[in-house]
Amino acid sequence: MDIIKFDKISFSYGRRKGDLPIIKNFELSIAEKEITLIYGKSGLGKTTILNIIAGLLKPQQGQVIVDEQNIYDLSARELDKYRSKKIGFIFQMFYLIPQFTAVDNVVIGMKNIRGSYQEKRKIAMELLDRLEIGDKGETYPELLSGGQQQRVAIARALANDSKIILADEPTGNLDKDTASEVSGILEQLRNEGKTIVIVSHDEHMKEISDRIVMLDKEYMSRTGVM
C-alpha cells in the first residue's frame, strides 16, 4: 500500500512562476514499510522532494497525498502537527541543538508524547540505549563523533514514533564503517514497520533499499526495483 503519492508535482525556486524549475509533472509512489531511495547527482531536486513530503515546500502544481490526505490542503498550524506526528527527519549535518545534551536533543523531538520531562527523558534514554549510545546521554553534541551525532539525530527522528522517516544524505558526513552502521539501523527500523525515504548519492544505500527512484538531468523520473 502506498503511503506517499506525488500527483503531477511541479516545483521551482524563485519568486516568479517558472524561475529555476526543479521538478516538472513529477509522479511518485512510496510504499508503506519500505525503504525508498531517491538517487541522483547533486542539484536534481532530491532534497526538494524530501522537503515537499515534509510539508516544508509547497509545490506550485499537483497534490502530495500522505496517508490519504493532501498535505497542502492543511493550514500552517495543521502542517506543524502533521510534521510532528508523522515525520521524523535525519540530516546529513545532524543539526542537533548545540546547547542541549544528547538526551535533551531527543526530548525536544517528543512533541506528541504526553508526560513529564522526567518521563520523556526516560523514553529518550531508552532510545539512545537502543542505538547503543546510552552512555553518551549527558554529553553535548560537540563532544560526540559524527556517527554518535547521527545516532542521536536518528533517536530524535524516532522520538515521536512517526510513521515516516525522511533521511537527507544520512551517511554523507560519515566514514565507511560508521555509514554501514547507520545503514544497518535504518534497515532495522524498516523491519520494525517504519517507512523510510532516503535521499542520497551514496551507492551503498542501494543495498538496503527496496525501491530506487532515479532522477536524471531532464527532471524526469524512472523507477526501478532492485
Binding site: A54, A76, R83, S84, Y95, I97, G109
Partner: peptide, 14 residues
C-alpha cells in the same frame, strides 16, 4: 538561527 530552523522542522509552531 540554526536552532529556530531545527525546532520548526520538529513540528513546533511559530
Amino acid at each position: 538561527k540554526q536552532n529556530v530552523g531545527i525546532i520548526r522542522i520538529l513540528g513546533y509552531s511559530k
